[in-house]
């Protein structure tokens, strides 16, 4: 129902009712920010990228055909935007938010749980940072965007089997990095 509404709204935007884009922004700027944050680990960059994605969706609204879901189209544009910025992003240090995240996770736990969980999550966090981009991408879309493999297949423009295989390889890589990371 929600996705049908998304397409209806986007078709209105396409027809010239540009203000309707504010509704889609309200719905999707957080998940989109989450995806872009996991792909860059930079807050400000991610916020800039969210703006860029919404700008592109406005500018290229004619290319939206409603044959697929709005979110798939949005993530496709987000991926292209990332590709455009890819090289400059890779030059940057990705670990800037690690301590910040640890701080965030620290509230509401007993001192013992606190330390153990904090370390475990930090380990996972660091392991994810070290994943290759394509592996992190498929896991991010699956876990943080809560998309089905079939949907991810549409966004990445590959077969569903290829997505599943990639997800499995990503988990293998993540496990390997996580287990070999010193905590």
């Amino acid at each position: 129902m929600n996705s049908l509404a998304d397409n209806t709204i986007m078709l209105k935007v396409k027809a010239g009712d540009l203000d309707k884009m504010a509704l889609l922004f309200e719905r999707y700027h957080r998940p989109l920010y989450g995806f872009l944050f996991h792909m860059t680990y930079q807050r400000e960059t991610s916020e800039d990228l969210v703006q860029q994605v919404f700008y592109k969706m406005l500018k290229y609204r004619e290319t939206f055909t409603a044959t697929g879901e709005f979110v798939h189209w949005m993530y496709s544009i987000a991926r292209n935007t990332l590709k455009d910025q890819g090289k400059s992003l890779k030059q940057r240090v990705k670990h800037e938010n690690t301590d910040d995240l640890a701080e965030r996770l620290s509230g509401g736990l007993t001192p013992e749980e606190h330390l153990e969980k904090k370390q475990a999550k930090l380990g996972l966090y660091k392991a994810m940072e070290k994943l290759s981009d394509s592996h992190r991408e498929v896991l991010t879309l699956c876990k943080f965007q809560e998309l089905k493999y079939q949907e991810i297949a549409q966004i990445l423009d590959i077969s569903e089997i290829a997505v599943k295989t990639r997800a499995h390889r990503a988990m293998q890589e993540l496990k390997s990095i996580y287990e070999n990371t010193e905590r």
Partner: peptide
């Protein structure tokens, strides 16, 4: 690991967005 990832948080986007 899969379950742990659920607990990985994403920072909130700023109000400026």
């Amino acid at each position: 690991l899969w379950a742990m990832m659920d607990e990985v948080e994403v920072p909130e986007p700023s109000a400026n967005m």
